[in-house]
Amino acid sequence: MIRAQNVSKAYGEALVVDGVSLELPAHGITSIIGPNGAGKSTFLSMVSRLMPMSAGTVTVDGLDVTRTPSDVLARRLSILRQDNHIAARLTVADLVAFGRFPHSRGRLTVADKEHIDRAIGYLDLTDLAGRFLDELSGGQRQRAFVAMVLCQDTDYVLLDEPLNNLDMKHAMGMMKIMRRAADELGKTVVLVLHDINFASWYSDWIVAMKDGKVRHQGPASQIMRPEILADIYDMDIKVHEIGGRRVSVFYE
């Protein structure tokens, strides 16, 4: 379980994340939604120790993320942020192999290689395994990074806008992979998503943030209501039920 208590981040006077206390359930998919500037990514970065907190504590399975040795956390929690630019010249296989670093410190074992192959296969990258990252499209590269994170094989997988750059087919594929990772491998997946319909369709739990605070949280069916969405996004959003799931329409 990831537990955040009174987590804040301030840049000078501006509070980007304002005293967030949150318990993210273990197992299943949790999506964090909210308008731009709501503090979603910043929150995720603090949970994953990429960014120091101005105040508050975060524990992952009882381990304080600011005090636990980084390599211990790296075997328990993985994070992928939005902008991934790498200057080094890497192939997809090289990149995915880095996911094993927390376990093998650069000495790949047979088991590591199986993990690497599986992660590459999972993200449908087998044909691209030998390609260099700078020869890939944005979507392919995004999938390669997700493969690296999955290859890390941690209980908690945190992804900041994993659907960025993906077309509909691959966005759906990505969410299905997350679903499988949660259902079959028992992982806890936390996503920052902009597409609330994807969040609605695939998440077990949705956290809605606005102005640095958690405004609402609950199962998808509870959050996907016109009045709640209107409160979060300040716009008129209609919600329809299709096949027992809620879909929002907000195009005019």
Binding site: S48, L50, S70, V72, L73, A74, I79, I86, Q152
Partner: peptide, 8 residues
């Protein structure tokens, strides 16, 4: 960020 994620 990747280095921190990988436990360095």
């Amino acid at each position: 960020e990747h280095a921190v994620n990988l436990g360095v």
